[in-house]
Design a protein around this nucleic acid. Structure first.
Lengths: 190, 190
DNA sequence: GTCTATATGTAGATAGAC
DNA sequence: GTCTATCTACATATAGAC
């Protein structure tokens, strides 16, 4: 509700978002975020009581960003298949980051799965959002196994990002994204 | 080369292997390993100079274990397709652990990708071993795009493990492993 | 609201007695 | 070879001046 500090609060969240992705949550210290923003460590506690609360804010931001992406896909076409292709194309733009650091939500989820279950649950919500949106597109195509297909598409995307990060192979990523698009175009056709 | 301490050394490696999988490398402390083994912290430095050396020993153990698994698959049949199915069946047995903590080599790779490149490179070698073995089975089937198919199979497996760990859904894992087996059986048939 | 100084805990790593 | 005591660095978190 404040007016002045909100800018600083968002700068902390944005820097944390980036660092949690590139170095991981546990390996990102307050000092790292402080150096990235120029805001002193002690000041963080004016906006957040704990590091967990920063993570919570980061995940909220990611949900908002993903919602924006999905809304843009929805606004461009009414056809479920075309929406899925648009979404796939948007992911493809992050190719270089994926090769370097993996999928932002996938790797964060893997990391948090090994620690506090409450944190893991929060990170899972980003996947829930995405799964439901993909499912709705398949439902719009009249497919009865829409939820299974949503899981399959997510698994394909996650599999590619893991392998991309392991082997750092641009050509592999290009080829695999084409396979994804082919699969979207074929799926559910008689 | 010693005679007495080798048992303790292996106990440290085995406990670290398990903890690195369930909690992650960075989140596993010497105290954790100490409590798991009953061996005092300070004693570790008789066997390993740094924590990185423990990781190195763990990765060597994993390479050996994986080599053993692959050899067993090779000894049971000469047919590449059947070997791949045997391997897939072996992975399926780890279903509960995968749901809880993900793929041992996949999640470790994701974690190490965000830190020291030298550590990441070591963990990548486990994937290289696996990729080459799968490739050889496709080559034995006379398929010219064997390496691409090996990457595709690895991506499928990794995608399933990520989603399994995110959503903790046993039925999803069962269904997906059946898809893998179907794919292995179809691939390369005219 | 902002910043410095500091409290408290724990990490990896070392020294040296036995 | 084994173990205890300890060093140094850095983590999250707090207190309080401005």
């Amino acid at each position: 509700m404040g007016t002045k500090g909100d800018g600083n609060r968002q700068r902390i969240v944005d820097a944390a978002d980036n660092l949690f992705y590139r170095r991981g949550y546990n390996q990102t210290s307050f000092q790292d975020i402080s150096e990235a923003t120029g805001i002193p460590r002690g000041n963080f506690y004016y906006y957040f009581k704990t590091k967990d609360e920063i993570l919570d804010a980061v995940l909220n931001t990611r949900v908002e960003q993903l919602t924006g992406i999905l809304n843009r896909c929805e606004n461009q076409t009414q056809n479920g298949r075309e929406r899925l292709l648009l979404f796939s194309n948007m992911l493809e733009k992050n190719r270089d980051d994926v090769i370097e650091s993996g999928c932002p939500i996938g790797t964060l989820n893997s990391e948090l799965a090994k620690g506090d279950p409450a944190l893991h649950e929060k990170s899972r919500q980003v996947f829930v959002l995405l799964r439901d949106w993909i499912k709705r597109q398949f439902v719009a195509l009249g497919l009865s196994n829409a939820d299974d297909l949503a899981m399959d598409l997510l698994a394909k995307l996650q599999g590619i990002t893991v392998m991309a990060c392991v082997f750092k192979d641009v050509d592999y990523v290009k080829r695999s994204h084409q396979q994804i698009k082919d699969w979207i175009n074929e799926t559910g056709l008689t």
